[in-house]
Design a binder for these strands. Structure first.
Lengths: 204, 204
DNA sequence: GTCTATACGGCGATAGAC
DNA sequence: GTCTATCGCCGTATAGAC
């Protein structure tokens, strides 16, 4: 038990990096073992299978990176401030983890088979409090009649998708990383403005 | 040469179906050969490798499905009508090919290695005429000052991303296919409205 | 706990007979 | 053109030394 936690962590970290970079299916377990500096047999000692290891990593990545976002959605902030904070925090998170979007998108493709991850991702998008808030504001007449789901999908799309096509956006600017970051920085204001414009009653 | 065209097509069609359903990396060449009703070696006789076959299929899918969309973007329609037609045609196309989005997203993840597809996808999003149009209208003062790239990314995100998270949206409605189609049908109006609201000067 | 060694069936790819 | 047979690598598993 001496260095056990350490070795397990080394495998975990090496696999995380490779999965994010190359995708799960294009990463071999021998490659993980090699990168972690350990033997192939240890891979199977700690995690029974590659799929098992992937499950653990996926769960960790989702939990680690969405805590803050869910907290904002479930807070008691007003709708406008909530949307602004959520968009900013989400873009910040994805800027720090730019590979996360395409990683998750790749998983979604095969999630019809794997119910575990489906539920994990689904919880990410289950936002009863936000939906209720939109519904209430809508009913009270504070905002235009608005479908909470449509609004939430709008918001998610506008935040997330640009990271998925990051390379295509950068293609127009000679793959300048700084330019992409400026592009996303601009969207921190643009996206809330766009969404609020669509739900506010008088925009004068 | 007798049945050659036929066999090649059988391989091509079987592979297309499997790639879209399961993803490239999770489809084996033996599975393709089996589905096509031919021998494994013939796979390699017609297409030198699985990756080669994939390239051919990818190019075909992109060309086949984007012709109409590019035509709309390059047309002489006014900005509002152009946006409305583009959104509708794009959603119609993806409704008919619901697996296309996650397939393309999965490819984007590994496109850093493969420049061929990068350029193919990139051309999809290269829209000089649309950009010029937005720029001109912006300069003439017909619309608010608007970044063409930001506007185009907004539009693409709002159209495309919901298909990528289709299963998560359906999760809320007991996986009712009809409900998702109604959801996307609603977006044919919602998305142009949202975009136009953000660029029009007086929305009264 | 960590290692070497070895084995299994499935994979992408190919050489060579017909 | 089509096939069989084979190659080396893959994910997974296990036996056994230290």
């Amino acid at each position: 038990m001496a260095k056990s936690k350490n070795t397990e962590q080394k495998i975990f970290d090496a696999a995380t990096e490779l999965f994010l970079e190359k995708g799960v299916d294009r990463t071999s377990v021998r490659e993980i073992a090699n990168k972690a500096g350990i033997n192939l047999a240890l891979m199977n000692y700690y995690f029974r299978s590659k799929e098992n290891l992937f499950d653990a990593i996926f769960t960790m990545l989702v939990k680690k990176n969405t805590r803050k976002l869910i907290k904002i959605l479930d807070s008691d902030l007003g709708l406008e401030e909530k949307i602004r904070k959520y968009v900013e925090a989400y873009i910040d998170m994805l800027t720090e983890n730019p590979l996360l979007v395409s990683f998750v998108m790749a998983i979604v493709h095969r999630s019809q088979e794997r119910i575990t991850q489906m539920k994990a991702i689904s919880s990410l998008y289950s936002t009863p409090k936000f939906a209720q808030q939109v519904f209430d504001e809508s009913k009270k007449g504070h905002i235009k009649p608005t479908s909470p789901t449509q609004l939430f999908v709008d918001m998610l799309s506008l935040i997330t998708f640009p990271f998925a096509i990051k390379l295509l956006i950068m293609d127009k600017t000679s793959y300048d990383e700084a330019h992409f970051q400026a592009f996303m920085e601009e969207r921190k204001q643009r996206i809330p403005d766009l969404l609020l414009l669509s739900i506010k009653k008088h925009e004068e």
